[in-house]
Design a protein around this nucleic acid. Structure first.
Length: 428
DNA sequence: TCTGGGGTCCTAGGACCC
DNA sequence: TCTGGGGTCCTAGGACCC
């Protein structure tokens, strides 16, 4: 419950160039150097330090397109190391949680905080500066904090910090009563919630910046964009439409998908890959005590290939007879689906499985109860062995041994925070 | 030659019913 | 020849996010 007329305040903390900053923490030689981190399969650039941004390397750019610049300026390149980033993220989030009572962890490197409940006349700016310093000192990760009357304005404030070297890590947009000048400098495509499609539509209608968007008629926005567009517009005007979301919400789907390290042709190789993906997905939902009602499986060739005769993509939705998280049941069903959609003669590039219709495991499950209990015991043993002796110590036969489909990951740093060997190296 | 992965929400349109 | 209308529910696809 919120007191009417009380000024609302949201803060957004966002780690700067997060993945690249993580690499820097454990490799001081990277300080002040251009660094980029790649997506899975060493495909695209997904994190860049300011030095790399200054060289004109774009977010999401395929590695091969940036290769020239990388060589010329000796940019340091890393494969993504999610074990490391996940553990660094936990450290940052712990400090934020201790500093702010109402927090929503929004992504691996971002968190929203509702700060209007802090003391009256509190100096939010000073407090945020202080938290920022603690995080930098204790984890080595630099962050930016934006403060605004709504989540969208906090995002804008954060954007301003990141794009203005004179601002020292924190910007409070609530201090600016007339926001016209500041919003005029934000291009529509930089607004949170306005993506590629909608920004093009707005520009076509002569709306080029955030201020012009705030001046547009509500009915026009509702009709030509959608309800979310209208909410975004209202948030820019300082009217909160989005509250903090609680972090314990059960997820609704679970996806495991990968591009293959090499293009693969045979049903045998795809079977192995798909089997590994569904096994991983089952593990993930078991870990969260969820069961699934539906599997969606898709396979495709390279979508960038211009020759339509060489392109094939298909998917299949498989309803389960009863909700389950049993690896063996899920594997069987998925592989039946795969046999239905697989076509010979194509070079496949990617496959994925999505478990949906997720619900909490029900202990009073009557139908198939005995069968279910037996499977559950087996899966517990399966998970125990893999946790105790390392990932994939035990796996099911259809995953295969050759694994010709495994992704590329040629420039990976060590798991400094999780492996004992690396911890010793860091200490020395 | 080489182009990521994992989520959420909204909406249009089809299926079905009376 | 003439062939309703309105409601609900579900799903696929599209848009967005990091």
């Amino acid at each position: 419950m919120y007191i009417k007329n009380k000024k609302r305040m949201f803060a957004l903390a966002d780690c700067n160039s997060f993945y690249a900053s993580c690499e820097r923490v454990f490799n001081p030689k990277l300080k002040n150097k251009p660094v980029v981190v790649l997506s899975n399969n060493d495909g695209c650039i997904v994190a860049r330090t300011n030095e790399a941004k200054a060289l004109g390397i774009k977010m999401g750019e395929p590695l091969f397109k940036a290769q020239k610049t990388i060589k010329k300026y000796n940019v340091k390149v890393f494969s993504s190391n999610y074990a490391l980033y996940g553990s660094m993220s936990n450290r940052v989030m712990k400090i934020l949680e201790q500093s702010f009572p109402n927090i929503e962890i929004y992504s691996i490197d971002e968190a929203f905080m509702e700060i209007s409940s802090l003391k009256k006349n509190y100096n939010y700016y000073k407090y945020a500066i202080n938290v920022r310093e603690i995080i930098l000192k204790w984890t080595g990760i630099p962050i930016s904090i934006g403060i605004g009357e709504t989540k969208t304005l906090a995002k804008i404030a954060n954007y301003i910090v990141k794009n203005n070297s004179k601002i020292n890590g924190v910007f409070d947009i609530t201090k600016i009563k007339n926001k016209k000048k500041i919003l005029e400098q934000i291009k529509v495509e930089e607004i949170w919630g306005i993506g590629n499609k909608i920004s093009k539509l707005l520009i076509k209608n002569n709306i080029k910046n955030a201020y012009e968007f705030t001046q547009k008629d509500n009915r026009w926005v509702r009709k030509n964009i959608n309800i979310l567009g209208l909410k975004t517009k209202m948030e820019l005007n300082g009217i909160p439409c989005y509250e903090l979301e609680n972090n314990f919400k059960l997820r609704k789907s679970c996806c495991v998908s990968r591009s293959f390290g090499k293009k693969i042709k045979s049903l045998k190789d795809i079977t192995e890959a798909v089997s590994a993906y569904i096994t991983r997905a089952a593990e993930k939902i078991r870990n969260e005590k969820l069961v699934s009602n539906n599997i969606n499986l898709y396979i495709r060739t390279n979508p960038f290939n211009k020759n339509p005769k060489e392109y094939y993509a298909n998917s299949i939705s498989i309803s389960l007879d009863y909700p389950t998280n049993d690896t063996i049941t899920l594997n069987k069903k998925t592989l039946i689906g795969l046999n239905k959609i697989f076509r010979k003669g194509y070079l496949y590039q990617k496959a994925g499985v999505i478990l949906s219709g997720l619900e909490a495991e029900n202990k009073d499950f009557h139908l198939f109860k005995e069968d279910n209990e037996r499977k559950k015991t087996l899966m517990s043993a399966f998970d125990y062995i893999n946790q105790r002796y390392g990932k994939n110590s035990l796996h099911i036969a259809s995953e295969g041994i050759e694994k010709r489909w495994l992704m590329k990951r040629s420039r990976c740093s060590s798991n400094f925070t999780t492996s004992l060997k690396d911890l010793l190296i860091v200490k020395c």
